[in-house]
Computed example of a mutant assay.
Amino acid sequence: MSEFDLGTDTFRIGKLNAFQQFHLSRKVAPMIPMLIPVFLKLKQSSAPVAGEDGATVSTETPLSGDLGALAELLQPFADGIAAMPDETAEFILSTCLGVVQRKQGASWFPVWNTSHNVCMFDDLDLGLMMKLSVRVITESLGPFLRGMLTGQSNPKA
């Protein structure tokens, strides 16, 4: 389980079982080709470069540069989400949020009630739910997606 702060709250992500990972990857897979240019742009814009004096300096953050270009990159992703059937979108959110817990005092409480498909906290808005879902997808499917994107360069015999 990983713990992290988001806003003023602390969350932790549990593990999706193998079948949840499989079904989630099937639902997310059509979005991956749309995200590759975004990931490449974000990686490129966050890479450090050498300044005039030879010292390493940071480049601008992805959102501080050309917003028009970033919007253009995100358009296929936004179109993909808009075209996604409601059932698929709800499956992705409920599966992801179903393994997230929020710290309240010294105790942890589930963010999502999986049997009723409802958020357990009134103050969690869609923006925060999306951030949590992306975090779950990244942690749960990250190794699989990285392997799919990079391939096996040195397969073992």
Rank of each mutant, 00 (worst) to 15 (best):
L149R: 00
V111E: 03
D53F: 08
G51N: 10
P30Q: 00
M130D: 02
M120K: 15
L63P: 04
S2F: 14
L42D: 05
K27F: 00
A82L: 08
T59I: 09
E3L: 04
L73N: 07
K103P: 03
S46Y: 05
T95L: 02
G127V: 15
V38F: 07
M148A: 13
F77M: 03
A106T: 15
I137A: 00
K131H: 14
L93Y: 14
S2A: 11
G68P: 01
G68Q: 13
V28A: 00
A29Y: 00
E87V: 12
M148K: 05
M1C: 07
E87H: 09
N17D: 10
L70T: 03
L128P: 06
R146E: 09
K43E: 15
K41P: 03
P85D: 03
V136M: 14
G142T: 01
L40E: 10
L63M: 12
K131V: 09
W112G: 05
T114N: 09
P30E: 03
L149I: 02
D125W: 11
P155F: 07
L97F: 13
L40W: 07
A83Y: 01
K103L: 06
F19K: 13
P37K: 07
T61P: 08
D53R: 09
L16C: 11
S64V: 09
N154M: 10
I81L: 01
Q44H: 11
A83T: 04
I137N: 02
E60M: 12
R26P: 04
K43C: 07
R12M: 11
T138W: 00
T114D: 13
F22R: 02
P37Q: 08
K103T: 11
P62Y: 06
I92R: 02
L93Q: 06
L73V: 08
D79K: 09
D66E: 02
I81S: 00
I13G: 10
C96S: 00
L126M: 12
H116Y: 11
F109P: 06
A29C: 08
S25G: 01
L40N: 10
K103R: 15
N17A: 10
N154Y: 13
C96W: 02
T95C: 14
P33S: 08
K15Q: 13
